[in-house]
Amino acid sequence: MPPATKRSRSRGGGAGGLEYISLDGLRIDGRRPTEVRKIRCSLGALSRADGSAYYEQGNTRVLVAVYGPREPHSRASIQHDRAVVKCEFSTAMFASPVYRRTWKGDRKSTAAALVMQKAFEGVILTASYPKSQIDIYVQVLQNDGGALVAAINAASLALVNAGVAMSDFVVACSVGFVDDTFVVDPSSLESASDRPELTLAVLSHSAKIASCQLDSKLPDGESFERALEFATSGANQIFKVLEYEVRKYSLNLLDSRGLVAL
């Protein structure tokens, strides 16, 4: 799509506008409000990284690589009693229909990187790896909404692939609000700059919250708790998929190690 300056479509439901939820209660892409998009992922996609994962959630695609624990890049960042976790979030030049510079330093990317760093610092057993550094590199290849969510989920897989010890498994999900309805895992069409969107990262086993962000105010009469409920249910759906993938991957590994007779 030629992006120059797009004419904005009229937003919201009602006469003359785009209908986000049909009369049957289905969203534009046919999903129910509580349904997460289809997830496809694979561990160990890259050969040089210590751990990696390729992850698709609907049309959003990300690639995450983990290096470490390894020697810190700069003497200044060494912590004597734990590992330092660093995250970089980068979006490909062609990842969204709207042209955006790939310069990693752009505000949204820096914010996303910080959210991820904090979330994973909380689960990685950093005390097990003093004086070292763990790097998480995210590259968004295609962004159809929920890029941060995809990045967090892919990073969990990549960390597992790298064998980095963690106290739990982080899983993320976002919730949007269209046509007076909460919708889980909004696509880019369903997210807009003026809409509220909640991005939640939870620890799968202890159910604790690793990170929670709400962009924009929730409409009057809608509770934060309800939004959180939706996000948590979405995260549980996603966890089931990721857990299955990790088990499948680990089983394949054990089989091919020659641990079963050749």
């Binding site: 030629p2 992006p3 120059a4 490909a92 990842a95 042209y99 159809d144």
Partner: peptide, 27 residues
């Protein structure tokens, strides 16, 4: 493979992997 690009290619040469994409704007 990348729908947001007007043209894209993912190439693997053994394990070496490159992802190329073309973005178009009217100016």
């Amino acid at each position: 493979s990348i729908a947001t690009a007007v043209g894209s290619a993912m190439l693997k040469m053994g394990k070496t992997t490159a992802v190329a994409g073309v973005h178009a704007t009217l100016v």
